[in-house]
């Protein structure tokens, strides 16, 4: 295990920010910590990196207890904080060099790895510029460069794509995949379900300080995959259609909104051909038909009763 937390608890006054969190992250994976704002993700990360002391529970990183100051552990961890943590009055290269020096790099190795980090994040041609001239996406990338120049074995990224354009976001997601391919284990927190879905092999869903589900994406989806949604767009709607569709085997519910019919059906029990036949018999044509599989969003919705972005 690269990261292992055991019954981690943190209170702020009367608020239970982190409630007996147990996480296990293995070497070489991209692990997603998914949850809405205020779920306790950042507090959990702060406890992992020693910025916040847990009220109870234990953290082990690289098999060593992470309480207190442990240089050996810290040298192998890179942190990308949620808020930008770069100096606006140092150039991009100076920012990366500053943090790389703090991680112990020096001499030629320092220069080489700083250059690599800037190259990796697409900022090599801007290395002499001050971040105040950068776009939000470029600042985010510099925020990442500062965390990877020392080539850590574990990279912890806390909402690294908040508030940036799609192009920069894609660049960052590609970077995370590449870092992982190069051997880094990544803990990636986000409230963007799509990012976690796209990047991560395993996911923990967090809400109100608790881990409400944890496993591979497939395992999580299996938790709520008793039903599937079939959304059909029609050329015209006959109001007797609802009753006729409900009579099809496996269909539990049918609703119509304008020209779209939505069926809720027991998973893998409905014959799509039979549904199309019923529709055609009413004189209507099927313009599109989509069988929606469960997503992490629907998992979260099912488990908490609310949407991720609430």
């Amino acid at each position: 295990m690269i990261i292992k937390t055991t019954d981690l608890v943190k209170r702020f006054g009367d608020t239970l920010a982190v409630d007996h969190v147990n996480l296990g992250i293995t070497q070489g994976e991209i692990f997603g910590l998914l949850g809405p704002n205020g779920a306790g993700k950042t507090t959990t990360i702060n406890m992992l990196v020693g910025l916040t002391s847990p009220d109870a529970g234990e953290v082990a990183i690289f098999g060593k207890k992470a309480n207190g100051h442990n240089n050996e552990v810290r040298r192998n961890v890179g942190i990308v904080p949620q808020e930008l943590a770069i100096y606006e009055d140092l150039t991009a290269r100076e920012n990366v060099t500053f943090f790389a020096r703090l991680y112990g790099l020096k001499g030629e190795q320092l220069q080489t790895q700083v250059s690599q980090a800037l190259e990796f994040t697409g900022l090599a041609d801007r290395e002499k510029q001050f971040p105040k001239k950068f776009s939000g996406g470029m600042k985010r990338r510099l925020n990442i460069a500062c965390a990877i120049a020392h080539q850590p074995k574990l990279i912890i990224m806390d909402e690294p794509t908040v508030g940036i354009d799609p192009q920069s976001r894609n660049h960052i997601l590609d970077s995370v995949r590449l870092l992982n391919k190069q051997g880094a284990t990544v803990l990636y927190t986000s409230h963007y379900m799509e990012e976690v879905e796209e990047l991560c092999s395993r996911v923990a869903i967090m809400d109100q300080g608790r881990i409400i589900a944890q496993g591979t994406k497939e395992e999580l989806k299996a938790l709520v995959a008793e039903e599937e949604r079939i959304v059909i767009e029609l050329s015209a709607v006959n109001y007797t259609l609802v009753d006729e569709l409900k009579a099809v085997g496996g269909v539990n519910e049918a609703t119509i909104a304008e020209n779209t019919v939505t069926l809720l059906a027991t998973k893998n029990t409905v014959s799509i051909g039979r549904v199309v036949d019923v529709i055609n018999a009413t004189g209507s044509d099927v313009l599109s038909l989509n069988v929606e599989k469960p997503t992490l969003e629907s998992v979260f919705l099912t488990l908490t009763g609310k949407k991720l972005r609430d």
Binding site: V49, G50, R74, I79, A85, F99, L102, G104, C146
Partner: peptide, 9 residues
């Protein structure tokens, strides 16, 4: 930034 520095060695 101060918090970030505190996560370094």
């Amino acid at each position: 930034i101060g918090q970030r520095i505190k996560t370094t060695p």
